[in-house]
Each structure stands twice: as structure tokens, then as C-alpha cells.
Computed example of a mutant assay.
Amino acid sequence: MRESAAERHKRLLELVRKRGSARVSDLAGLLGVSPVTVRRDVEALAGEGRLDRVHGSVSWPQGRGQGWEPWRGQAPGQGGAERRAGGGELVLGLLAPSATYYFAEVIRGAHEAAAQAGARLVLRISDYRPEEDRSRAEGLLAAGAEGLLIAPGWRGPKDPAEHGDWLTELPVPTVLLERGAAPGSALDGLDRVVSDHRHGVLLAVRHLVGLGHGAPLLVARADSPTALAVRSGYVDALDALGLRAPREAIDSVSAEQRPEDFEAAVRALHTAVASGQATAAVVHNDVDAIQMVQRLAELGVRVPQDLALIAYDDEVAALADTPLTAVAPPKRAVGRQAARLLVERLTAGPDADEPRRHLSLLPRLRVRASCGADQRTP
């Protein structure tokens, strides 16, 4: 008969009580289970105050006799958050590819939710180097993180397969942030919280069509999961509305890093407008959109008179000379919901068996001057 979690916890506690302290790796061998299982058991028992934990080892709570049983007298189902009150601060680890622009708001939301739960958030940045994600996550664990929020530094479509398998081997509860996974893959079994970028692009395309334009052009990068989601969302939006793209998407790049390629993108958009091929465009991201509007003006194309434009991200769109209508992913809400989900996992009782969750939050469209809505609607 398969041993229950409660029976395994009892054996684990007895081993630690007799030894005073033990390494997690040693306990795995003594109990005949995997290190991952032992680590999860230790997290649950430490959260209840039954054990004292430091990274890699556990000890019998100081000041308690051998007959001490901290679980006695507790109401059935009492939450881990309450039991943790005298057992130290809950520590959450957050790995993000950047602490600026898009992810600044995600981090802020996670920090708010952690603070509300009485937990501490520890942050590490990968700088979009997916090959370094694993070591940085291990650094968070070494710093005492008991659960992880991870936005891998993926850039291209092959990165999840090449740099993602390690995520499923983590010994603590883990929630993916703003990252999806291939259906049926091991990564697809993790908790995750994401913005629904397909819905966001649909909002933009539908708004422009409602203003009397044909299918808008897409000008987008291809250097991040968000950019790739915007591109695929554009195709889906056109299909949903029965539209055909006026031409292939225009590849956008950073004007600072690749000025010649950025100029080529601006020229392609200018040609499409001058030839009558398109009267509207969706541009990812805000910074590119602002710089394109400035350059187009120098070439004689006015926004919104000659080109209705909607940016994607809404980080700095409102600050443009002509404030840009923009799709706003719920970045701060993503961070909040992910941190709340992680805290829930960490403070659930040892016998909790809740299903994994995929939370998809809907972006909003913030209408400003660049789409020309005030010129086309009563």
C-alpha cells in the first residue's frame, strides 16, 4: 500500500527528532523518496512550526522537548499563514528578465501582494540571458526563497525547449509569469499567470476597423515572448474579423541598437501609407511607436490625419507629442495574482491537493489622440 503524506511526515519528524538535525539529501535516502518530495514535506512542516529550516537542512525546533508536538490543539484545516506566525517570515523569490519597462510593473504588483501577505520578496534579474536563468533561480533558493515566481529570459520561440526543462525540476512551488508553454509539455503543467496578448491585439484591430479603416498594418519586434504573442495575436484577430493583412508584418527593432534597420521599418511604413496600402497600424512597442511617429512626421506622414496608430504596452504612450492610443496589458495585476497564488500554495496544509492553475488576464485599450477617434466619432 502506498504511504500517505501524513505517514511520511511522521517518519520524517521522528528522524529529525532523534538526530536533532539532518540534511534534506540524507532524509531522502533514509525515507526512500526523492529529494523533491522531501523538500516539499520540509516546506510544509516548517510552515507549521514543526521543524526549523535553513537551506539544505532541517532541525528540531529549539527549546522544545522530545515529546513536543506543535500540531496538538490546532483546529483541522488551520492555514499555514496562521501557523507560520511564530515560525519566521515567508520568503518568495522572483526571477525577471528586467527590472525596467514592462517588468517594472509586474515586479511592483508581486511586491505589493507579498507585503500584504506578510512575506518578503527577493529579486534577481537575468537580463534576458535564458542560459543563466537556472543558476539565478538556484541563487534565490540559496537566499532562502521557499517558492519562486519566474519569468524566464526567453527571447525566441526555441528558448522554452532549450532552456526550460529545469523549471519542472525545482523543489519548491513555482509560478510562471508572462510566459506560456507548448500544450502537453512538462512546462504546461506548472502554475502560470499571463496577459492575454491575443485579446489585446484583437481590441486594437477591432477599434481601428470600427473607426472606418481597413485591416491595419502590424509593425512589431520579434525578440521577446510578448512580441511573438502580439504577432500571432494579429493573425488571429484578422481571422476572427474576416480581414486580410494589407501586407506582411513590418519587422521593428531598437532605433538605438540597430538604427539602419529601424529606418528601414519606418520607410516601409511610410511607403504603405503613401501608396494607400494602409491607413492604420498597430505598433509594438511604445518606444518604437513614439520614435516612428516622430520620423514619419519628418517624412510628411501625420498621425492621426494620415495614419491612425495604436501602440502596444502602454508604458510611455501617453507621453508622446500626440498621445498614443495603446493596449495596456495588466502587468501589475499579473504580478499580484502570481504572488497570491504562490503564497496560497506555500501556506496550504500538507494534505492540500489543489489543481494547477493557468490564469489569463485581459488587457485594456486606452483611447487617446493617435487613433483619430475624436475625428471619426460623434
Rank of each mutant, 00 (worst) to 15 (best):
T377H: 11
R64A: 11
R295G: 07
A255T: 00
A320G: 11
Q74E: 13
P355S: 09
R336T: 14
L167S: 02
L362A: 15
A222G: 06
A297N: 14
R198K: 11
S126H: 02
V106G: 04
A204S: 09
E69Q: 14
L203H: 05
A186S: 07
G88V: 11
Q62D: 10
L319Y: 13
R84Q: 13
H163P: 01
D191S: 02
G32C: 12
D236V: 14
A115T: 14
E69L: 13
A142P: 01
S275P: 03
L94A: 15
G233H: 02
L177N: 06
E298H: 12
Y234K: 01
G118H: 01
P246R: 06
P329E: 03
A186N: 00
A280E: 04
L217K: 01
R368I: 11
R129A: 14
L187Q: 10
A339D: 09
R332M: 11
D159K: 05
A227C: 09
V16K: 03
G276H: 10
G156D: 10
R155N: 03
L140M: 12
A348K: 05
K18E: 14
R40L: 15
D306S: 08
A181Q: 04
S126I: 12
D191K: 00
L228D: 06
P61G: 10
V122P: 00
E354W: 04
G212Q: 10
A104K: 10
H358V: 14
L90N: 10
E7D: 14
R376Q: 11
S135L: 12
E354H: 14
P246S: 06
D261H: 10
P173D: 04
D321Q: 09
S185F: 04
Q74H: 13
Q337I: 11
A181C: 06
L30I: 07
S252E: 08
A227G: 12
E169D: 14
P330R: 08
V24S: 03
P355R: 04
V343M: 08
G109A: 07
E138Y: 04
A278C: 03
A352M: 06
T168H: 00
G200K: 03
A46L: 10
P363S: 10
S370Y: 09
L341T: 03
G77F: 12
R368E: 07
D191C: 07
L31Y: 00
V219G: 01
R258M: 13
Q78M: 14
S25E: 15
I290N: 02
A272R: 02
V230S: 00
H111T: 08
V316W: 00
I107L: 14
T347S: 07
R72M: 13
P378F: 11
H163K: 06
A151C: 15
A151T: 09
T322P: 03
R356H: 11
A297T: 14
R247T: 15
P70R: 06
E43N: 15
